[in-house]
């Protein structure tokens, strides 16, 4: 019993460590690739006129070149910066909209709650990719547009989690005690509800980030989301698809691998966080 629990904890700790390492690694790449490209230490990810097309991996081009002669390695590195930017801004936006709405809805209850829950549940029933494809199509291409399309997908998730938590915490005695002291709804939301409902959000955030990387890739693959001038894993994969039957594997492998490892890292981080957050109180009590 004891060993199995220790085993589970050490596994989750190891997962969390790997997750942090991977995500930090991508963060560094995202930070330094644009600088290196700007300082001409790396080639421009869009420049390919003087390069051979479909060159296999070599010393000159570590991951080969694609059908326009662009360096696959640089495009893959630059793609991580784009992916992190879009995903991060989409999730922050979703958080800023979803959490306050959820708190208000859960705390006030009544008609407001019912209408908001209906809207959010309707959004939630739509398949993630379908919804984001439609939104991306309506909003057009561009970095903020892609972020907005993704954000709408994730707002209902935060809303649901925070709303249910709020409805539960609302019934606690300390909320009533605060009301009896004369605190208004805004004060209670800010000082009493917020810190008690926010605990489940970090886990959801990292797991959603993993999901959002895939959805962004899916949008790119369908030719939506970002403009063609911005290197993005999804659109690169789509272009690689046509050449794959002729034995040109490197254009598909490297962007795909980059996406896979980032999703893996974020998932590890999320699972580790969940264990840590749910395990921490039990550990300190016992």
């Amino acid at each position: 019993m004891v060993t199995s629990r220790l085993g589970a904890r050490s596994l989750s700790a190891r997962m969390a460590r790997w997750g942090i390492a991977i995500v930090a690694f991508y963060g560094l790449i995202a930070l330094f690739t644009p600088l290196l490209v700007h300082g001409s230490l790396l080639p421009d990810p869009n420049a390919g006129l003087e390069n051979p097309i479909y060159a296999p991996p070599s010393f000159g081009h570590w991951c080969g070149t694609d059908r326009l002669g662009r360096d696959v390695c640089v495009r893959t590195l630059a793609g991580s910066s784009v992916a992190l930017q879009v995903v991060l801004s989409a999730l922050v936006l979703a958080l800023v909209i979803g959490v306050p709405l959820g708190m208000v809805s859960g705390y006030l209850g009544g008609g407001v709650d019912r209408v908001l829950v209906l809207v959010m549940d309707t959004l939630y029933t739509l398949p993630v990719l379908l919804l984001s494809v439609v939104l991306a199509f309506l909003l057009g291409r561009g970095l903020p547009n892609a972020a907005a399309a993704l954000c709408v997908v994730y707002v209902p998730q935060y809303f649901r989690v925070v709303r249910n938590q709020s409805a539960q915490v609302k019934a606690e005695l300390f909320i009533e005690a605060a009301r009896s002291l004369g605190a208004g709804p805004a004060w209670i939301l800010r000082r009493y509800l917020f810190r008690n409902v926010i605990t489940s959000v970090p886990v959801l955030l990292t797991l959603n980030a993993a999901d959002a990387v895939l959805v962004l890739g899916g949008l790119g693959f369908l030719g939506l989301g970002l403009p063609e001038t911005i290197p993005e894993w999804g659109s690169d994969l789509q272009q690689a698809l046509t050449a794959l039957p002729t034995g040109i594997w490197w254009t598909a492998l490297f962007p795909g691998l980059a996406m896979f490892v980032l999703v893996l890292g974020l998932s590890f981080l999320g699972e580790g966080l969940e264990h840590w957050l749910s395990g921490a109180p039990a550990g300190s009590d016992g």
Partner: peptide, 18 residues
Amino acid sequence: CLNPQMTVGEAVADPLLI
């Protein structure tokens, strides 16, 4: 009846701030 996330000092001072 006390907010589990609030320190004792904050909890006692809060009514004045409210």
